[in-house]
Simulated assay, not measured.
Amino acid sequence: MLALYRLVSGWPLGLLHALGAALGWLTWLASPTYRRRLAAHARLAGYRFAEVRPAVAHAGRMALETPRLWFGPPVPIQWDGTDVVDAAYAAGRGVVFLTPHLGCFEITAQGLAERYRARYGSITVLYRPARQAALARVVETARRREGLETAPTTLAGVRQMMKALRAGRAIGLLPDQVPPEGMGQWAPFFGQPAYTMTLAARLLLQTGATPVLVWGERLPRGQGFCLHFRALAQPLAGELAPAVEQINRAMERLIRECPQQYLWGYGRYKTPRPATA
């Protein structure tokens, strides 16, 4: 698998995105369950399928651009809202970058590591280890790069992120990822109860770190990506439950900036899996 990823990583980004778009539509056509879930999730947010139709192709683009981002040459990155990032780092309390399953979330950590590591140190990103051994080796190899550290979804990983924040460094995670049972709370997401991780809010409340919202827009015709940074609309609530709900609302606002690139087919409203020992 690693050899295949390295082979594809040399292909032009525009070609990968074109092939990925076709893959996205083939997946959509082949799976009635996926079609129903995508349309239902978009409908909860107030969108007709016609309004989020491009999301089908973008899901495929995300899959095929990954080898290029992991093993290929750098891709062009544009920056929007870096004043928010500069202010967050300057506060000196650590930074928590929050992004939903929107656009290209792989490029956000890479871009931040490249731009800010020399001045502010590495960024630590939370990841869920792959269950397949071959894929796990690929991921481990791919994400081993200067300025970028990874923390698994374990107690040791949480301690690693806490340590980074207390040292004034940055971490990144996807708060709309469904956590294992016992590691979240039910909170509204586009008006529907969704099992939501409490980790992001806990880290912010316990460390006083600064939250920054970010998403990576996939630019047309393989031109690269644009990283958009936003501050929370209001200061984070001081209690856990309302803070979790506030982060969900913040994710909703980001998604509404570009619903055509959100992963509407992601199982956001699924019942959480049991926690493993």
Rank of each mutant, 00 (worst) to 15 (best):
Y5F: 15
Y5R: 00
W11D: 03
L13F: 09
G14T: 03
G14R: 10
L15R: 11
L16V: 10
L16F: 13
H17T: 01
A18M: 13
A21Y: 02
A22V: 15
W25A: 09
T27L: 15
W28R: 03
L29Q: 13
T33H: 13
Y34A: 12
R35K: 08
L38Y: 09
A40E: 15
H41V: 11
A42K: 04
L44V: 05
L44Y: 14
A45G: 06
G46N: 00
R48A: 14
R48T: 08
F49T: 03
A55S: 15
A55K: 12
V56A: 11
A59Q: 12
M62Y: 14
L69A: 08
P74F: 11
Q78I: 03
G81I: 12
V84W: 04
V85M: 06
V85L: 07
A87W: 04
A88V: 10
A90G: 02
A91F: 10
V96N: 10
L98N: 13
L98Y: 09
T99G: 13
H101Q: 09
L102D: 06
L102T: 03
G103T: 08
L112M: 13
E114K: 14
R115L: 08
R119F: 00
Y120Q: 07
S122G: 00
T124P: 00
V125W: 01
L126E: 02
R128M: 06
L135F: 15
A136I: 05
A142N: 09
R143L: 05
R144A: 14
E146I: 04
A151T: 05
A156S: 13
G157S: 04
R159S: 07
M162I: 02
L165D: 07
L165T: 08
A170V: 10
I171M: 04
L174T: 07
L174K: 00
P175C: 07
G182Y: 07
G184Q: 11
A187L: 13
P188W: 02
F189H: 02
Q192S: 10
T196K: 01
M197E: 12
T198D: 01
L199R: 05
A200R: 00
A201Y: 06
T207Q: 03
G208V: 07
T210S: 12
V212L: 01
V212H: 02
V214K: 04
P220K: 07
R221Y: 09
G224N: 01
A237N: 07
A241E: 14
P242H: 11
A243I: 12
Q246D: 03
I247R: 06
A250N: 02
A250H: 06
E252F: 10
L254V: 09
I255R: 06
I255A: 02
Y262F: 15
G265M: 11
G267R: 15
A275R: 15
